[in-house]
Design a protein around this nucleic acid. Structure first.
Lengths: 338, 338
DNA sequence: CATATTGGGACATATAATGTTCCAGTGGGA
DNA sequence: TCCCACTGGAACATTATATGTCCCAATATG
């Protein structure tokens, strides 16, 4: 069952919308029968003509009957509703969940990729691809895109597929502590290459002292330039990490790791957040800072896996994300904790 | 699995064509990769633009890659083909089977309703509804429709749903030996009422002697009139019966029943046919005769259940049917005997 | 270097979806 | 009994989408 629906979503994603709509229409007729087209349209929030097209199909399929009083579902239609319920339940579950999470987390749009990226690597890649197509959707000429690091972002960059020669990609923050192919610099370069556009890099390690930072800043004018581009990026697209994992990976001092582990659950762009969404700790670096958010056009967050549920909640509570792309496992885990 | 596909066929039948096409395109790319749009279009027998729309979708879904050499399926696409194979196999199985049977039986169009009408009553009704919509498709003003008797035809008549006030419905043959609601007369009346049209009846029992028939004919001018309408009907729509069952039901003489049971397998419109399609025996009655077939516009045959497989083969071999509506069980049984 | 094929792009046209409006019936309530 | 608000059916202009038909620069292959 689940597998078929996965296939469906992959090979014909627009079809599920049709199925959902027809099921929904049928259900509403059952609920309010006998009911007329106009009343039904008002009930469903659809235009009369669209409802008409739907009910004409349902009539043709023998699922509804027409009479002078209005439409009503046939016995067969009644049976079908019951059967369709669980089918559409799974189908519709995610889009419904998307709406719920969007409201609860205060995000404009939540996109849930079916499956579990921790168990199924194809789901992981699918998150990347989905986020990439969201990005492509917003892309326009001469835009500046800021990207974070991380394995998810790396997968995303690989699947970007558009021609945007006038776009510039920059890393959202310095940070050289990680595996090289997951560094923001590399990801910015990869993405820019895929887009046929330009990129600028930031060669600044995470966690430098204030003094050292200042010294590098003054000695290298490129850094301030890039930092300024980051602050006014048109699109910021970033991953979300678990606070503890990230603090370990970044080799912070043991007491800092401890402090973060005790107080924080989520990390994004070098900021560590508590579950309530407060920024508890920030690594020293050049680049994006939390109060730059207001200046940025669109913010797209990407993450997957139920382990990251708390982290996702923390980060989304902290700032105003526009789009959140997650997998089904994360979505369900989030639903259970908020 | 089967159930979901049944739901799909019911709630969104046109969508399965899309799935099939995309699967087909994907499969052909895999077979001939790397291949270009034009070559692929030629291979598939589709127009270039249509292929293009498909591959653009497949590309967006990450199932194919484009390069200067042509298109090739990604690893994910490769995996998906394997998964889709069985899904589309079932989906496509029937339409493929329709084509096979149409060719082997020499019928213009075979329509297979999924399921087994012997086991599932909804399938039985679905056959009726499907045949009714085929009928509606061909219906035009002032047409004369000849109908046979039988339970399948009764189900069909109930589901007819169109407004055709200028249409006249007549029974294809006399025949009063059966259950009243399954008689051709009643079915003609029901169907005419559903269409808002007229009907004419034939009050002649099956199996009268030649002399008696002649007597009734001369005494009642109405009979010859209706008989003439039948001969020039625009649409003839009839059921198919098992020879032995029908001969019993019609209370023929014991030796006739025996003769039919030994030599015939199929019955339609009072004619009994051998498996090879030869007319072995004909009940005496007024109305349609085999050599009237040429005069009739469209012939639609309807039947269901695997028990009727041989009967269907016999009847379709006998005359030129235009459309045959059967259920999946019958279709598979037919496939195994031809 | 010539050639055939590639993907990408553009644009007119055909087809389908949709918005909008009207109509003749027909129940139910006054 | 009459009126009114509702029904389904139909029509038509408008919009959106799909499709057919070219052309182009790039590129692998000989």
């Amino acid at each position: 069952m689940e597998r078929i629906i996965r296939l469906q979503r992959k090979i014909a994603p627009d079809l599920i919308a049709v199925v959902e709509e027809r099921y929904n229409v049928l259900k509403h007729i059952q609920y309010a029968q006998p009911i007329g087209r106009r009343a039904l349209a008002a009930l469903l929030g659809l235009s009369e003509r669209v409802v008409r097209a739907d009910v004409e199909f349902l009539k043709e399929a023998g699922l509804v009957d027409f009479s002078g009083l209005g439409m009503s579902v046939t016995e067969e239609g009644h049976n079908l509703i019951a059967e369709l319920a669980q089918y559409v339940g799974i189908l519709h579950g995610l889009t419904k969940l998307e709406a719920i999470l969007a409201e609860k987390l205060g995000i404009k749009q939540v996109i849930i990729v079916p499956g579990d990226s921790e168990l199924d690597n194809s789901v992981f890649r699918e998150i990347g691809r989905t986020a990439a197509s969201v990005l492509t959707e917003y892309l326009q000429d001469d835009m500046i895109i800021a990207v974070s690091g991380g394995s998810t972002m790396a997968a995303l960059a690989e699947t970007v597929n558009a021609s945007m020669p006038t776009v510039t990609v920059v890393p959202a923050r310095g940070g050289l502590g990680e595996q090289v192919e997951y560094q923001a610099n590399i990801i910015a370069a990869v993405m820019a290459t895929k887009l046929g556009g330009r990129y600028r890099l930031l060669h600044i390690p995470d966690g430098m002292s204030e003094e050292a930072l200042e010294a590098v800043r003054t000695s290298d004018p490129n850094i301030n330039e890039v930092a300024d581009m980051i602050k006014h990026a048109d699109i910021l697209i970033h991953g979300i990490g678990e606070a503890h994992t990230m603090s370990m990976r970044r080799s912070h001092e043991p007491d800092v790791v401890n402090y973060i582990g005790k107080n924080c659950v989520g990390e994004a762009l070098g900021h560590y957040f508590s579950l309530s969404g407060d920024c508890i700790y920030t690594t020293n670096s050049v680049g994006f800072r939390l109060n730059d958010l207001a200046e940025v056009g669109k913010v797209i967050a990407v993450a997957g896996g139920q382990q990251k549920a708390e982290a996702i909640v923390a980060v989304t509570r902290a700032g105003s994300q526009d789009v959140l792309v997650i997998d089904e496992a994360a979505a369900r885990a989030i639903q259970s904790i908020i």
